[in-house]
Design a protein around this nucleic acid. Structure first.
Length: 319
DNA sequence: AAACCAAGCAACCGCATCAGC
DNA sequence: GGCTGATGCGGTTGCTTGGTT
């Protein structure tokens, strides 16, 4: 509506492409001082030759405190698969349930890893099913001559059951993919490399974040085993979390699980002041963990899934 | 050692939605 | 209620990197 395409990004002199550590530092410094938001003002105020959208994206997807990158844990994989089956490609909504992950990261991970993984498993399953079906057909052809007098209804005595495509089974897609992923839980997770600039930025940033409390620990022991040490120390659990309040840009159409799980008020503190909100972040993490525990309480979950309509039973929890 | 290829991911782009006037 | 600017979101692109020939 009268708005120029891609905002101001087409203007001459606007830089595109990868961000440099210096640009990152400039952006983070600005946000540390003024808070996130008012992205229009960022390029003008900082002298960055980037458009506002680029600044916002860089912040939300890369520089924002508390972001964890790469090495998705099996548990996170399952959350993503579950939520994807429930919500579709609403990456921001999915990301809102994985506070340490960005929508972009989740989207990339889904497109490059999970989709492929699930596809392979599906194909394997179908191959097995077809093999079994072929065997059964042969068997039945042979038997037809012997049991010609039997009722046609005898076909429905369950002998076709296992030849039915997986998609027609009573279990939901979410159940299927969850089972597949559980089965592959200990399979090697892909290793992700990180741009060298991230390390640089991490080190640069440490300078003006001295008074931060100790980093939050991931409650999933398995996760920590997977993390590369460099990421652990410098990025994943970096004390940036102390200015989490500045982010306020997790951008979700859905309430976080924690909001559903408790009666705690929404975290409106996110965009106010410069105080330390580590406690709120911890609280949110705990609330989230309780839901995750429910979600990944394997035996109980399996039971519930079997007794209910599969993944759809999650809906009341999520909405 | 060089060329080629494929995978992964950061960033771009354009549309949708929200919020203020 | 309509307009406009700001921001959010999801699909896509293209660069980088690692593996293979």
């Amino acid at each position: 509506m009268g708005r120029p395409p891609w905002c101001e990004c087409d203007k001459a002199g606007i830089k595109k492409g990868p961000w440099t550590p210096e640009e990152d530092l400039t952006l983070v410094s600005y946000i540390h001082e003024h808070g996130a938001g008012r992205w229009r003002l960022v390029p003008a105020s900082t002298g960055l030759l980037r458009c506002s959208k680029s600044c916002r994206l860089r912040w939300t997807n890369y520089l924002r405190p508390g972001i964890r990158r790469g090495n998705f844990s099996p548990r996170e994989e399952r959350v993503i698969v579950h939520l994807q089956s429930l919500l579709g490609n609403r990456w921001a909504a999915i990301a809102s349930h994985l506070p340490q992950r960005t929508d972009n990261d989740i989207k990339n991970y889904w497109n490059t890893h999970l989709k492929k993984k699930l596809q392979e498993e599906k194909e394997k399953q179908q191959a097995a099913i077809f093999a079994a079906a072929g065997h059964v057909d042969d068997d039945r052809r042979h038997r037809r001559h012997d049991v010609t007098a039997s009722s046609p209804l005898s076909k429905d005595d369950g002998s076709y059951g296992y030849a039915r495509p997986a998609a027609c089974s009573s279990s939901t897609a979410a159940d299927e993919v969850t089972q597949l992923l559980i089965a592959r839980r200990h399979s090697s997770s892909s290793s992700s490399s990180y741009p060298s600039s991230m390390d640089n930025i991490s080190k640069l940033l440490k300078g003006f974040l001295k008074s931060s409390p100790p980093p939050a620990q991931d409650d999933d022991a398995a996760d920590s085993k997977l993390k590369p040490s460099a990421i652990d120390d410098d990025v994943v659990v970096h004390p940036f979390v102390t200015f989490d309040h500045m982010s306020g840009t997790t951008g979700s159409a859905l309430p976080p699980i924690s909001d559903v799980a408790s009666t705690a008020p929404p975290q409106q503190v996110l965009t106010t002041g410069h105080g330390c909100f580590h406690d709120e972040a911890q609280q949110q993490q705990q609330q989230l963990s309780s839901i995750e525990n429910w979600l990944f309480d394997e035996p109980n979950k399996q039971q519930r899934m079997e007794n209910s309509d599969g993944c759809c039973s999650l809906l009341p929890m999520l909405f």
